[in-house]
């Protein structure tokens, strides 16, 4: 069953690639394929049960193809050494802001939902 899900994901990726290339875009076809696949699933043109196993396999190993890119920061670090402070501070601000805003707003909304008659 897993192979079906993997083949379907590869098929939608290739479809996305074909679309972005025909449009002359430099953007990868993965996201276009993702959007098309999501719409197809929501429209129930493909049953979720058929693709759940294969998708689960790919999502579980999401980190696999980015090990090399992440390790490649060894070279990127040299290029961006002069901007290290800007990168670290901006990342901390953005991450903690996002965590706090979403947590507090969702907490407020869920409390309102509970107390509303």
């Amino acid at each position: 069953m897993r192979i079906i899900g993997v083949v379907v994901c590869v098929g939608f990726w290739l479809l996305g690639e074909a679309i972005v290339r025909s449009l002359g875009s430099s953007y990868g076809g993965g996201l276009v394929g993702f959007a098309l696949f999501f719409v197809t699933l929501r429209a129930r043109l493909i049953p979720l049960e058929r693709v759940r196993g294969g998708s689960g396999l790919l999502v579980t190993h999401l980190a696999f193809p980015i090990v090399g890119v992440t390790a490649g920061v060894t070279y990127a670090a040299r290029s961006f050494a002069a901007e290290g402070v800007a990168i670290v501070v901006s990342t901390l601000v953005s991450t903690l802001l996002c965590l706090s805003v979403v947590g507090l707003a969702a907490k407020w909304r869920l409390r309102t939902e509970t107390t509303d008659p």
Binding site: G5, C9, W13, E17, G28, L31, L41, S55, L62, P65
Partner: peptide
């Protein structure tokens, strides 16, 4: 560095199907 970049290049082809696979948990 050049050999390393060449070595990791094929992995970029895996990112596409993996991105597509995220549509399933999102739909669920």
């Amino acid at each position: 560095e050049a050999a390393f970049r060449q070595g990791i290049a094929p992995y970029s082809y895996l990112l596409g199907p993996m991105t597509v696979a995220l549509a399933v948990p999102l739909a669920e």
